[in-house]
C-alpha cells in the first residue's frame, strides 16, 4: 500500500476545508464564522495547486482571502451587531436540514452511480494550465469575454459607489 504525498496533502487540505466550512455554518458568532471561512478559502487554493493550476490558486488567495473575506469582515464591523431576537424555530431547522440533505443526495447521486466518469478518468494525461497559457487564451480566443468582464467590473464599481453614498434627502437609494 503506497500512498503518495498528493493523497496526504489532499487529506490535510480537506480537513481544513471541511472544518472551516462546518464552523462557518454552525458557529453562532458571525465574526468567528467569517474567520473560519478563511480556512475554507485557503484550502480551496491548495486544491487548485493539486489540480495543476497555480495561477488560479494565487488568484483565489488574492481575491477571496485578500478581498472578499476582508469585505465580509468589514461588513460585520460596519453594521449593527445587535440582533438574534428571534432564533429559528424547530420546524424551520428541520425543513432546512431535510431540504439540504435531499439536495446533497441529488448532487451526490451522479457521482456515485454514473459509469461514464469512471471510464474517462483512466487517461494518464491530466490537464495542466501554465500562467502563460491562460494569458494567451485571455488575449486571443477569450478576448471578448475578458473585455466584458472588465466592463462588468467597472459598472459594478460605479453602481456600488452609487448605492453606498449617503444621501441627505429622504428618498435615499
Amino acid at each position: 500500500m503506497e500512498i503518495l504525498g498528493e493523497n496526504i496533502c489532499f487529506i490535510i487540505i480537506t480537513a481544513f476545508i471541511l472544518g472551516g466550512a462546518f464552523l462557518a455554518t454552525f458557529l453562532k458568532d458571525i465574526t468567528s464564522a467569517a474567520f473560519s471561512l478563511f480556512f475554507t478559502l485557503f484550502g480551496i487554493a491548495g486544491y487548485y495547486i493539486l489540480l495543476n493550476s497555480d495561477f488560479i490558486a494565487v488568484t483565489q488567495v488574492m481575491v477571496y482571502v485578500g478581498g472578499v473575506l476582508i469585505l465580509i469582515i468589514f461588513g460585520i464591523l460596519l453594521t449593527n451587531r445587535d440582533f438574534n431576537h428571534n432564533p429559528n424555530t424547530r420546524l424551520k431547522k428541520i425543513s432546512v436540514y431535510l431540504t439540504s440533505l435531499v439536495l446533497f443526495s441529488i448532487v451526490l447521486w451522479p457521482i456515485i452511480t454514473s459509469k461514464k466518469l469512471a471510464d474517462n478518468i483512466k487517461g494518464d494525461r491530466y490537464a495542466l494550465a501554465l500562467t502563460s497559457d491562460i494569458g494567451e487564451a485571455l488575449t486571443t480566443d477569450w478576448i471578448f469575454n475578458f473585455i466584458l468582464a472588465g466592463i462588468v467590473l467597472l459598472l459594478i464599481l460605479i453602481a456600488s459607489a452609487f448605492l453606498i453614498r449617503r444621501n441627505d434627502s429622504s428618498n435615499g437609494i
Binding site: 476545508i17 424551520k92 439540504s100
Partner: peptide, 15 residues
C-alpha cells in the same frame, strides 16, 4: 457537494 450543502444551510439558517 458538501461545501455546496453547507453554503445552502448557511443561507437558509442565518438571520
Amino acid at each position: 457537494g458538501i461545501l455546496f450543502t453547507l453554503g445552502l444551510i448557511n443561507c437558509l439558517l442565518r438571520n
